[in-house]
Amino acid sequence: MERYQGILAYCETANGKLSPLDTELLGTGSQLATELGQSLSALLIGTDVGAIASEPLAYGASKVYVVEGPLFKDYITEIYLVGLAKVISETSPEIVLLGQTQIGRDLAPRLAFRLKTAATLDCTALTIDPATKRMLMTKPVFGGNAMAIQMCEVSPQIVTLRSKAFSPPVKDSSRQGEIIKISVAIDPASTRTKFLERKTEAVSGIKLEEAKVIVTGGRGIGGPEGFKQLEELAQILKGAVGASRPPCDNKWVSDNLQVGLTGKIVSPKMCIAVAVSGSSQHLSGYSGAKVIVAINKDAEANIFKVAHYGVVGDWKKVLPVFLAEVKKLVS
């Protein structure tokens, strides 16, 4: 057991900087490290991540491992996996933290199976069990209907953290530490997956993840036309439009707007849920919302159990007046 020591946080970075989730990983990692009397290291992988190698130090890491090279230009599972596995085999951390992102949730399970251990994804809380000194990992299950606390009995313990579930640490740029380059050699001809291209849809206006106000529509909106009204309301309130799964599955709106356990995790100040029934998997996406306002014609809808303000009524009659009144207030 003693062979494993310390905590390693893999920071994905975004646009040449640490992402907010990266800092949440580092904050959580340093708390765990303090509690265990161990140290926190960070790992950066990419083409030119060396430029920000000192950044994780300011958030609590005492060492930063850098894996750099043209191979890591685009995310390819098998290539990144080799990089991560090499750093872990050389440093033997007891705990490995990743973000619950498209990359983290793809890497963590393969990494765990490769290292003959187990991963737990989408954690919302991590504590140390006083008796065993192992992590107690809390994660939503059954589409957010319940929470499970799990313990992994094999090392290293690998987890992904849900964004916005952990508070970021205070930045302290005076902190010092060690930066260590690790070279990873991979024969590109040996890889069986190849990145061909990336297609992105530009989001006009405010991004869902950053919005302070979100207007979400559900199955009851009935079609793409209804979402135009939601967009108008979102614009007036300087917010963004989101959706539960049915409008996305029915292609009324882009899949990118899905809020929920398997969609975007958002933390607005206010969420206005229109014709949203309130399935647990959808509500999981904005459990951090300060105020939820619900408009639904079904008084028994689950959304009213979590909302702070509610109107029972046909959204087609309620929303136009709501919109007009809000417009008056704002102007």
């Binding site: 737990t120 929470m147 799990q150 009213f304 909302a307």
Partner: peptide, 27 residues
């Protein structure tokens, strides 16, 4: 991985329902 606890978080709020004679008035 061992399951140590399974629970439902009591996340229910007290919803302030706004009612009126017409949906427009409620809005």
């Amino acid at each position: 991985v061992k399951l140590t606890r399974l629970f439902q978080s009591a996340r229910y709020t007290k919803c302030e329902m706004v009612s009126a004679d017409t949906p427009e008035e409620a809005a």
